[in-house]
Design a protein around this nucleic acid. Structure first.
Length: 276
DNA sequence: AACATATTCAACCGCGTAGCT
DNA sequence: AAGCTACGCGGTTGAATATGT
């Protein structure tokens, strides 16, 4: 047996809303609220609509302060940044953009922003390249990396990637002169712990990492914000970013950090001014 | 002008889940 | 604990409109 229908499909109107229907719904909700029951609402108003349809119409179109179209550059930046960090969780993204609905943002991303970022022609190739490069970097990094907080290496024993921590999507082509991103919101900060005491990493904390001791490369350190650049810039000095490994240059307390945790510290660059 | 194709976006569908009984 | 209901979400659809030939 399938799922029970939410309403009597045979007696329910579908398709675009008429101005009269809009007026009825808007007027009722403004006066009485939704009553906490969308299913019962259309009957109360005398609308031959499914409750879900009423809810959607109200949330996406009729409720006050809804903005349509004309996304600003800043909104573009926020959407891209969050999409890279958390994926297609449109409701969460919409929560960061007052007046925008998840549906609107989803449509905008799927029809315009994606193309604006990747370019219509190369969209598919770019995405494949992202995946390939991600695998490459991931394999090079392996499991060993040290994160240092207040001069102490954080020993993160939790090997499970937290649900909000995304897989890193490295920039496809090498980017130069990109605009740095905002550090992710609080909910995306990384927690590590030493001696059972939790620490929350911030953008100004230092991450230390180094190349394989056998390569005779020096240990390098940078701030979290700079890590974005290290990972994505593909500059000669950090070619392909990161080879976290055990070190023999005096920093003995190297601990493992898995890829998902690392990726939570950074986001992909947006709006590269130059794509090589 | 007529037709074909692409794009946009409102609306629908079904699933996961929270809350209630 | 199990079953049911409604809500909220993300993927998808399709009509309307724009653009290209």
């Amino acid at each position: 047996m399938g799922r029970a229908p939410c309403c009597d499909k045979a007696n329910v109107k579908k398709g675009p809303w008429s101005p009269e229907e809009d007026a009825k719904l808007k007027s009722y909700i403004e006066q009485h609220g939704t009553g906490g029951n969308w299913i019962a609402l259309p009957q109360k108003i005398g609308l031959k609509r499914c409750g879900k349809s009423c809810r959607l119409r109200w949330l996406n179109y009729l409720r006050p302060n809804i903005k349509h179209g004309d996304f600003s550059e800043e909104e573009d930046r926020i959407i891209c940044s969050l999409y890279v960090s958390i994926g297609s969780r449109w409701s969460i993204i919409a929560a960061q953009l007052p007046g925008r609905t998840d549906n609107d943002i989803k449509n905008y991303w799927n029809t315009r922003l994606k193309k604006k970022l990747f370019g219509k022609h190369h969209e598919k190739q770019q995405q494949q390249q992202l995946v390939r490069r991600g695998r490459k970097i991931k394999s090079e990094i392996g499991n060993s990396m040290a994160i240092v907080f207040d001069n102490q290496v954080i020993n993160n024993n939790n090997n499970n990637q937290s649900s909000f921590l995304p897989e890193l999507s490295p920039a496809a082509p090498p980017y130069v002169n990109y605009q740095p991103l905002q550090f992710p919101s609080n909910s995306q900060q990384l927690f590590g712990h030493t001696d059972g005491v939790n620490h929350e990493l911030s953008r100004t904390d230092t991450i230390q990492f180094g190349l394989d001791g056998a390569s005779n490369q020096p240990i390098t350190s940078c701030h979290v914000g700079e890590l974005e650049k290290v990972v994505y810039s593909n500059t000669p000095s950090f070619d392909d970013g990161l080879q976290f490994s055990s070190d023999n240059n005096g920093l003995n307390l190297i601990n493992d950090l898995d890829w998902g945790e690392m990726s939570s510290l950074i986001s992909a660059p947006l709006y590269p001014s130059t794509v090589i």
